[in-house]
């Protein structure tokens, strides 16, 4: 049986206590929310933190405030399963509800949290392996080694952002609150991510992701999330397409944001595609084809997830097209 390494466990009872503990324990601590990402990594000895700081005893992280009209703030430990059953979320941000409902499997969504999914470690064929496996390849750039086996000449790590909710929250214009002992800061979700497989979050060690803020959608706004993976459950996204558009009179696109997940170390924004869509109609197949082509250009998959590389690039174009067609569908 795979077992966790030895560690001590801390259970702060308030947000100030949590941030104080984080500051005290230092870099050897890891935050434990649902544990569905961290604990497997620890069992594989990818991570061996000396201390785990449990978040489930911190009530502030479970707080929920606001609504679809004013905008909604969700505590970071809101469980993924709660989003699919949350009337406000399914009504106003269906793409988020959809993304959350496609993460892993039902038991993983029952304990996995929104904050945890946002902070999900980047993944890679050469990284998400046991210590014995990684030892047999001489480890890799992400930890304990000096070669990136995906791109052996590379000086950076190409591990892949594999969160379902991250590209959606980016597209929705959501923000997050990061709390530390010295205070709080609120940043747009895209700013949470760095384009690096190792340090993939801009969150400092002493910071905890406390809350996610969803801006109120305008009535003419639509959003969508499509997920590509080998199996219909359990698997991480090999590609996630999140798109939000605002349609004016006659279905003309007035605003658009498209983010792709699973194709880089952070959610990739397809800005050229979004710009191209402005003033055009999604019901026009040529527009959709061209936007999909432009969007797929930001997808720079490498051979470190499931499916062959070349195919994934083609699939990105196809899936963006499908996402846009779904947005165009009359409702």
């Amino acid at each position: 049986m795979m077992r966790l390494p030895r560690f001590r466990y801390l259970a702060p009872r308030t947000l100030p206590e949590l941030t104080a503990v984080l500051a005290d324990v230092g870099p050897d601590a890891a935050l434990l929310a649902g544990g569905t990402d961290l604990l497997p990594s620890m069992k594989r000895r990818q991570e061996t933190p000396a201390a785990l700081v449990g978040l489930r005893t911190v009530p502030e992280l479970r707080a929920r405030s606001g609504d679809a009209i004013a905008g909604l703030t969700l505590g970071a430990t809101t469980r993924l399963c709660e989003l699919a059953g949350d009337g406000a979320v399914t009504g106003a941000w269906p793409a988020l509800a959809r993304a959350a409902s496609l993460v892993g499997s039902p038991p993983l969504r029952n304990v996995g949290t929104l904050g945890g999914n946002l902070c999900l470690d980047t993944r890679c064929t050469y990284w998400n392996q046991t210590h014995a496996w990684r030892k047999s390849i001489g480890f890799c750039l992400k930890k304990d080694g000096d070669t990136c086996w995906v791109a052996p000449g590379s000086t950076r790590c190409w591990a892949v952002s594999s969160s379902d909710t991250a590209p959606v929250l980016c597209a929705l214009g959501a923000e997050v609150t990061l709390a530390s002992r010295t205070g709080e800061r609120r940043i747009p979700v895209p700013d949470l991510f760095a384009d690096d497989g190792i340090r993939h979050l801009t969150k400092a060690r002493g910071e905890v992701l406390a809350a996610i803020h969803l801006p109120s959608p305008r009535p003419d706004e639509r959003s969508v999330y499509l997920k590509l993976r080998r199996r219909e459950a359990i698997d991480f996204p090999v590609l996630g397409v999140a798109a939000r558009v605002r349609l004016g009179s006659g279905g003309v696109v007035e605003a658009a944001r498209i983010f792709l997940g699973g194709v880089g170390s952070r959610p990739q924004e397809a800005t050229a595609a979004a710009a191209f869509l402005l003033g055009r109609r999604l019901t026009d197949e040529e527009t959709v084809t061209e936007a999909a082509r432009l969007a797929a250009q930001v997808a720079k998959p490498l051979q470190n997830t499931d499916f062959a590389l070349g195919w994934r690039k083609g699939a990105a174009r196809e899936y963006v097209g499908r996402a846009l067609r779904e947005l165009a569908r009359p409702r």
């Binding site: 434990l32 649902g34 069992k43 399963c81 029952n110 304990v111």
Partner: peptide, 24 residues
């Protein structure tokens, strides 16, 4: 698997389906 990938260890935790291999 003990990694949350197979479901064999599922239990109900406060009534919710959960994988006991991933719960401290």
């Amino acid at each position: 698997c003990e990694l949350g990938e197979c479901g064999a260890c599922a239990v109900l935790l406060d009534g919710d389906l959960a994988l006991s291999c991933l719960v401290p």
